[in-house]
């Protein structure tokens, strides 16, 4: 074997080693990301359960210790952002991403139900938005709608946005879609129990929100919690 052939083989070995290390590193980092999301979901799940239990324990006078601006809601939106990023990196068909999305959707539904209960019992008036989107190419204005909702969520902390992948194969989500009678015309919104389809502009979307939201909320760009 001459020197050039030997060098070519050694170089191929080095290249494969470098590429292998890089692929492993990227895979490891992605797994760490998913693991972080998983940990956050477990924490939020515990928080939800705690809140539900707290609510049950204080059945007679629950409202004095529960406020609508819990840390829970903020954690849920942060988790949603991270999950969307992971989905962008790993693809919407990644099995781990799909499982995490299902768990996240369940958490959102539980939080939504709890908030409904709180608003009835404790006369708290959060502004809830159920937002149904799709990543499968059948929703041309979902990007715009998602961005507009992110802006509203961060500007008006009273708003709680619950985002759902309309096509996610999850029984609870399908039931929610059925109960709320959501047609597959996406994007779809349920703002304060009122259905609304399509997105044309932020101004048009804002009209669907209660007027007192804009009158009583201080618009901020940081979306800080009380």
């Amino acid at each position: 074997m001459n020197t050039i052939t030997r060098n070519a083989i050694i170089a191929l070995g080095i290249t494969l080693l470098i590429v292998g290390t890089i692929v492993y590193t990227v895979h490891y980092i992605n797994q760490q990301r998913l693991s972080e999301i998983n940990t956050m979901q477990t924490q939020l799940s515990t928080d939800t359960l705690s809140l539900e239990t707290q609510f049950a324990l204080l059945e007679n006078a629950p409202c004095q210790d529960i406020s609508s601006d819990t840390v829970f809601s903020h954690g849920l939106s942060t988790l949603g952002d991270k999950l969307a990023f992971a989905e962008g990196r790993l693809g919407s068909r990644d099995q781990q991403v799909i499982e995490l999305k299902k768990e996240y959707a369940l958490l959102e539904i539980r939080d939504y139900l709890l908030i409904q209960k709180l608003s009835t019992t404790c006369h708290i008036t959060p502004v809830t938005v159920l937002y149904f989107y799709s990543n499968t190419g059948d929703c041309s204005s979902c990007d715009r709608a998602g961005y507009a909702l992110s802006y509203m969520r961060k500007t008006y902390p009273r708003i709680r946005v619950y985002s759902f992948d309309y096509h996610l194969d999850l029984g609870a989500l399908k039931t929610l879609i059925e109960v709320k009678k959501i047609k597959p015309t996406l994007p779809a919104f349920v703002i304060q129990r009122k259905r609304f389809y399509g997105f044309t502009s932020l101004a048009r979307l804002e009209k669907e929100f209660p007027k007192d939201l804009f009158a009583t909320s201080t618009a901020t760009s940081t979306g800080s919690q009380k």
């Binding site: 020197t3 050039i4 030997r6 060098n7 070519a8 050694i10 170089a11 191929l12 080095i14 290249t15 470098i18 590429v19």
Partner: peptide, 19 residues
């Protein structure tokens, strides 16, 4: 990128070899 990496590795190995 793979070809570029391979070529640079090849050059590095060649640099270290006897000729």
């Amino acid at each position: 990128f793979f070809i570029a990496l391979y070529f640079e590795s090849f050059l590095l190995v060649t640099f270290l070899s006897e000729p």
